[in-house]
Design a protein around this nucleic acid. Structure first.
Lengths: 118, 118
DNA sequence: TAAACATTTGCACAGATGCTCAAATGTAGA
DNA sequence: TCTACATTTGAGCATCTGTGCAAATGTTTA
């Protein structure tokens, strides 16, 4: 952190330019938070299942993922807090869905690229 | 995990269909791994800086992010292992770059969507 | 009201993560 | 060879995460 390599001066322009063009700390934290939400198998399964089914309740998702209702509920809270899923209450059930078309599109794009390259 | 809610039978079709259409476990783990790599502020900064500058050495990235060379190196290893960045050795320096056009495109798309919606 | 059941919440704990520090490794030039 | 320096690596540590359990909360129906 305090250390600065000797090549620093040569590269100073590049460094300053890159630093200047980097989005603001806040935006980076937001974006990282968003990717982080997708970066967990359980949460990704939830999102993929919702992408497929449109709407599913907590217990459906528990059955699909074979994880406890509690585990799913904890993860749904994270997705809900980050505005990645929305929900609707219907009697005893709570139905979750992808929050908007952007999430759907982004998920689809990402998966396409992954299947192409990796 | 062992618990199954009573609504299960009604929803059985939806559950089975969603389960069937879910990508294989392996693919999901891969995709989650990929998103996870982007889901950390330090790694995301590295990638954004590389997107901007094209090519940067470890010590440049340390200067840009204001983190220790060691911390950056540890994170670069993760990005390298996951084939998200590639590198080229030049004397004492090691220059890193985004691994392929897909990564660049995906990053760009994701950031666009984020800035639109969030 | 009570009973049944879907969901959420708080706690606990094992395992993962991200950083620093110090040492090791690699590379170029004197 | 020795020295300088860029980078990597491993250990240690504090913190964060993901899950199950048990209890709490909500909602419907009898």
């Amino acid at each position: 952190m305090t250390e600065v390599c000797k090549v620093y001066e040569e590269h100073l322009d590049k460094i300053l330019e890159a630093q200047a063009k980097l989005p603001e700390e806040e935006s980076i934290l937001e974006a990282a938070d968003f990717f982080d939400a997708l970066g967990n198998p359980t949460r990704l399964k939830i999102l993929l299942a919702l992408m497929e089914a449109g709407e599913l309740c907590t217990c459906d998702l528990s059955a699909i993922t074979k994880l406890s209702v509690s585990a799913i509920s904890h993860q749904l809270r994270i997705l809900k807090d980050r505005k990645i899923v929305a929900y609707r209450k219907d009697g005893k059930n709570v139905f979750y869905r992808l929050d908007d078309e952007h999430i759907r599109k982004l998920l689809r794009t990402a998966l396409e690229h992954l299947s192409e390259v990796r």
